Simulated scan of single mutants.
Amino acid sequence: MQIFESRQGRLKVIGEHPALDLLNSVDVDRGRVSDFLESGVALARWSEVAALTPPDEVQKLVAALEKESVAGAVLGKVHAMRQLLADELLEVRQSEDLAALLNDLLPHPLLSAAGEGVILNSRGDEPAEQRLLARMALHIVALLLSVPRAHISQCEAPNCDWFFLDHSGGRRRWCLMQGCGNAAKARRHRAKLST
């Protein structure tokens, strides 16, 4: 498990898939929203921890996202991608052509259908921030096309809404046993003692 630190605090990167880690980059706890991708530099650093940006590209990405105009535009697209994925997984809406919706968020269409999948059409000379957006879009599509929905779970803890890959066949209930799972066990134990 990787740890990402920002002004919002410490974020455990636990989703086991970059698209799920993107979803988990916003945390709602008791009505308080913490968006760990609150700045361009935070996005660049998080993308390295979440394995979306190769280490040799991080400094270029940081330099690009230090510019407020670039960071604002990129963060807006990242937040839109995150919301699009959340809507898909929570079945708020089902998109017929997710690649087309994601392409709308890219500077120019980089995703195209290829049989049952999607391919990334990159020249390799795009700016670092565009490559990050393209990789995010590709990971979102790859998650939805290649991972059965039964293997994507959301934590059952009352104050947690994180997503994770569930390799147990639907038996896993908590994002992390060391956190949410132990808290649930402690609540059940206190409830038994009080009756």
Score class of each variant (00 low, 15 high):
Gln2Glu: 14
Ile3Arg: 12
Ile3Glu: 13
Phe4Thr: 14
Ser6Arg: 00
Val13Tyr: 04
Glu16Tyr: 01
His17Cys: 05
Pro18Cys: 04
Leu20Phe: 02
Leu22Ser: 11
Leu23Cys: 11
Asn24Trp: 01
Val28Tyr: 02
Asp29Trp: 10
Arg30Gly: 05
Arg30Glu: 14
Arg30Pro: 05
Val33Asn: 06
Ser34Thr: 14
Asp35Thr: 10
Phe36Tyr: 15
Phe36Glu: 11
Ser39His: 02
Ser39Met: 09
Ala44Asn: 09
Trp46Asp: 13
Glu48Lys: 05
Val49Ala: 10
Ala51His: 07
Leu52Asn: 11
Asp56Ala: 11
Leu61Val: 09
Leu65Arg: 05
Glu66Tyr: 02
Glu66Asp: 08
Lys67Gly: 03
Glu68Thr: 15
Glu68Trp: 00
Leu75Lys: 13
Met81Leu: 08
Leu84Tyr: 00
Leu84Asn: 08
Leu84Phe: 01
Leu89Thr: 12
Val92Asp: 12
Arg93Ala: 07
Ser95Ile: 09
Leu98Ser: 02
Leu98Thr: 03
Ala100Leu: 13
Ala100Thr: 14
Asp104Ala: 13
Leu106Val: 09
Leu110Ser: 10
Leu110Glu: 03
Ser112Pro: 13
Ala114Tyr: 11
Ala114Ser: 15
Gly117Gln: 01
Gly117Ala: 07
Val118Trp: 00
Ile119Asp: 02
Asn121Thr: 12
Gly124Asn: 09
Pro127Thr: 03
Pro127Lys: 04
Gln130Met: 04
Arg131His: 06
Leu132Gln: 10
Ala134Cys: 09
Arg135Gln: 11
Arg135Asp: 01
Ala137Trp: 06
His139Thr: 12
Leu145Glu: 01
Leu145His: 02
Pro148Glu: 00
Pro148Ala: 01
Ala150Gln: 15
His151Ser: 11
Ser153Cys: 05
Glu156Phe: 00
Glu156Cys: 06
Asn159Glu: 14
Cys160His: 04
Trp162Glu: 05
Leu165Trp: 04
His167Pro: 12
Ser168Phe: 00
Ser168Asp: 05
Ser168Glu: 05
Gly170Cys: 06
Gly170Arg: 14
Trp174Ser: 12
Cys175Val: 08
Leu176Arg: 15
Gln178Ser: 14
Gln178Trp: 00
Lys185Ile: 07
Ala186Val: 15
Arg187Pro: 14
Arg188Lys: 13
His189Met: 10
Arg190Glu: 11
Leu193Arg: 15
Thr195Trp: 04
